[in-house]
Design a binder for these strands. Sequence first.
DNA 1: CAAAGTTCCTGCGAGC
DNA 2: TGCTCGCAGGAACTTT
Length: 301
Amino acid sequence: MPELPEVETVRRGLEQAMLGRTFTGVVLRRGNLRFPFPDGFATHLLGRKIESIRRRAKYLLLDLDDGRIILSHLGMSGRYTLFDAEKVKQFETSQNIDEHSRFGTATGFDGRHDHVEFRFDDGSVAVYTDPRRFGIIDLIEVGEEQIHPLLETLGPEPFGDWNANQLAKKLHKKTTSIKVALLDQRVVVGVGNIYACEALHRSGIHPQRQSKTLVRKDGKPTKKLHLLHENVVQVLEQAVEVGGSSLNDFADVNGTLGYFGHHFQAYDREDEPCLKEDCGGTIERITQSGRSTFLCPRCQR
DNA sequence: CAAAGTTCCTGCGAGC
DNA sequence: TGCTCGCAGGAACTTT
């Protein structure tokens, strides 16, 4: 579910519902996700107000009124579901009370994987659900955002002042394939397996091509690298516009499906025709660093 | 069998 | 020769 466009979609949903809200309760249904929850997590949050909600790479940052920050990552299967006060009431009076979350029927996994409940002063609730538990919910102490180990190694955001020259600088010595380089969050953040495949297909670049062959001897980007930079930005922007991809039913915090899946040109299209004008090739699936890559061997060189 | 992500470990080659 | 460093590739985490 979560590459930059999906995380940004979630950020916008959380912002609408949580901004200015104060925590009145936090329920942890287990001791950890990928990492243990920090000591005193629930206690720290009680009475705190959410002042802003930001995104950095694929991380969500919720700024609290005491300077601390909730840091959250969705991993592979994490999702937030929001319930307004009226919906919460319906669930609390329903027969659906067992050892799991009361919200199970609405979060799609019968409540077994609803690991955290955040309750707010207006009666609304946000539930974090994550079957594979590769996600993260952590608390950053005041002033420690810049030195947080998960954040400090991150490369540039694709939106903003990122350009082909910066990309060339990161790639000019790299012998690894361009597909694997795009997934490296030190090169550029936010790109995952789906959008890496899509950006390379749009650019006509073979995913196994050595990264440094896209940089000229004088360190400047080749034409193809300029194209790749543009297409990475463009594919991410377009996916944000339509609310992310709906692979495996990716839904935003209100349960609305993303639409970008309708726009895939390569990803998950093995043995289907290449959709590039006049290409006539067939999409192929290969494995790189243990992950599936989809490409058209005819128009990607 | 494969899955949208990230970190950590091991092995190898370059360079001192 | 032997050591260190950085990079590249793969395993691991877990459930559906």
